[in-house]
Design a protein around this nucleic acid. Structure first.
Length: 520
DNA sequence: GGATCCGTTGTAGCT
DNA sequence: AAGCTACAACGGATC
């Protein structure tokens, strides 16, 4: 039983499948951590992301032990090599490999490779669908009348075909309770831990705990706010969903504000469940069902703005990520219109990534991303628009890479989908001329008020004494105010790296020009 | 087959 | 301060 991206006991179809299958007499629970994740020095994954996964894995292991009396077998290394070694070391004594379906190309590639090897050994591979999604991705995209969804209406049609509709939302079926016991083969686990050719790749709970401590001391993750794991996920679920019917029933994205009114600038105004969803700590199906239950008792918002709407967009991107070839690329991608982006500009990209563009709203968001691994939905829109068609005119792929590395809710399907959308290259509704103002004033939908000013003061300490009136464009403040605020622009905080109005105008016409050439 | 509608999130400038 | 208007004008679905 190989857990790939499912680190929870609740609504985990793997556990129930295993339990209900009569063919399986005993099992060995397994997790494999790729070395990219295990190596603390790897630079493609941020310390925050690693921390979140380690915590999630430790918590899952603990819950598994409490429930079933044994730790999960954890190895690090290449998945297919580890699986091969296990078959060899157990003398082909196991007959089934069960795992959760993962739609990412590299993971599908891995599973195909493993399948080839298993077939020769007469071992069955069972990939359980829809573990971290509501829809069975493969089944939906292979159905006869499937075409790529492009809007909330399109994805709603897909739901409508499959599920019964109630006035309060689609009925997708109950989520699962974990089985009360599992017949685990401890002897085989002992063999793999102590007497196998992969013993050296075994990660005990103590090793993982030390690894987490080392990570925390090495990279001073002082601002990390989200703690990984099913326990935290369920606590947050309880607090923000189950016990907050008004929040659920009135939830209306995009009209959530990017900064919090209460004292904690780190607590999101949205659910904050995204990292738990993408790491498999909470079930999307359970979240859907809880919202449905709450919606039944009251009037409520509807898709696409409601929480059900958010979950539907998530499903839409999962489908597209599987059906659109080269989903993560800017060429040979049917969902990416070719735009002549500017030359790779290292200075601008570095300034953007490190929060030194001279645009406080953008910089605050990017510093929050770096420090915590999380950013509000609207902030993600603002900084990605700024990076691409708004101001910097850089290829969305470079921005995407930064998000992928740093976001604790990093998710291949969703991250690429949102960048395609915001860059204006996807065939979704996104008039390219709607460019977010990187210096949002009180008229902007990015909604400023004093909360955003406080948000900026929190993440950009250089500006902590700056008056709200000038804080979004501090270089426009009279020099007396700059001196009084102990922040002289050009010395203590950078001048804007671009003229926002001039770049906006130029980029609009460049985009228009690209469109013209494409339609010819 | 041409017109119209619609799409989860706009900005700037003036009164 | 709030409200109005000009700007720019995609592209598929539906009528």
């Amino acid at each position: 039983m190989w857990f790939r991206n499912v680190l929870r006991l609740h609504d985990n179809p793997l556990l129930n499948k295993t339990c209900s299958s009569e063919k399986i007499e005993s099992l060995v629970p397994l997790y494999i951590m790729e070395d990219e994740w295990f190596n603390l020095d790897s630079i493609t994954i941020s310390a925050n992301r690693k921390k979140f996964l380690y915590e999630s894995l430790l918590n899952f292991n603990k819950n598994f032990r409490i429930k079933y009396g044994v730790d999960i077998l954890i190895f690090h290394g290449n998945s297919s090599k580890i699986i091969n070694s296990i078959t060899e070391n157990l003398d082909n004594e196991f007959k089934w490999l069960l795992c959760d379906y993962c739609p990412e190309p590299d993971k599908r590639h891995t599973i195909n490779k493993i399948k080839e090897n298993l077939v020769n050994l007469e071992i069955n591979l069972k990939v359980i669908p829809a573990v971290n999604t509501i829809l069975d991705v493969e089944k939906v995209i292979q159905s006869n009348n499937f075409s790529n969804p492009k809007s909330s209406k399109d994805i709603e049609k897909i739901f409508a075909e499959k599920y019964e509709h109630s006035p309060h939302g689609y009925i997708i079926g109950d989520s699962l309770l974990p089985p009360s016991n599992l017949n685990i083969d401890k002897k085989k686990m002992e063999v793999l831990i102590h007497e196998s050719t992969i013993s050296e790749f075994y990660i005990s709970e103590d090793i993982l705990k030390n690894k987490l401590m080392e990570l925390e001391s090495k990279s001073k993750i002082t601002d990390s706010y989200f703690v990984g794991g099913e326990d935290e996920a369920l606590e947050r679920f309880e607090r923000k969903i189950s016990q907050s019917p008004n929040f659920v029933n009135s939830f209306s994205k995009p009209s959530t504000i990017s900064t919090n009114k209460d004292d904690n600038p780190l607590e999101p105004t949205t659910t904050g469940l995204s990292p738990y969803l993408s790491n498999g700590c909470i079930s999307a199906r359970m979240l859907w069902n809880e919202c449905l239950k709450i919606n039944f008792n009251s009037t409520h918002t509807l898709p696409p703005e409601s929480l059900h709407g958010q979950l539907m967009f998530r499903e839409m991107f999962y489908l597209l990520s599987r059906s659109v070839v080269n989903w993560d690329n800017d060429i040979e991608n049917s969902n990416c219109k070719p735009i002549q982006w500017g030359e790779y500009d290292e200075l601008k990209i570095k300034a953007w990534e490190s929060g030194l563009t001279g645009f406080p709203y953008i910089d605050a968001m990017m510093r929050q991303l770096d420090a915590t691994g999380w950013m509000h939905h609207l902030g993600r829109h603002a900084v990605s628009c700024f990076f691409t068609r708004g101001q910097l005119w850089q290829n969305w792929k470079y921005g995407r890479n930064v998000f992928e590395k740093k976001l604790i809710d990093s998710d291949w399907a969703l991250n690429n989908g949102n960048w395609l959308w915001l860059a204006g290259v996807a065939p979704f509704s996104m008039p390219y001329y709607r460019i977010y103002n990187p210096c949002p004033d009180s008229k902007s939908s990015l909604n400023v008020e004093t909360t955003n000013a406080n948000f900026i003061r929190h993440w950009i300490p250089e500006l902590s004494h700056f008056p709200s009136k000038y804080i979004f464009e501090p270089h426009l403040a009279p020099s007396t105010i700059q001196h009084d605020s102990k922040c002289v622009i050009g010395k203590d905080y950078p001048f804007p790296i671009v003229d926002r109005k001039q770049t906006r105008k130029r980029n609009l016409s460049l985009f228009k020009e690209s469109n013209k050439q494409l339609s010819n």
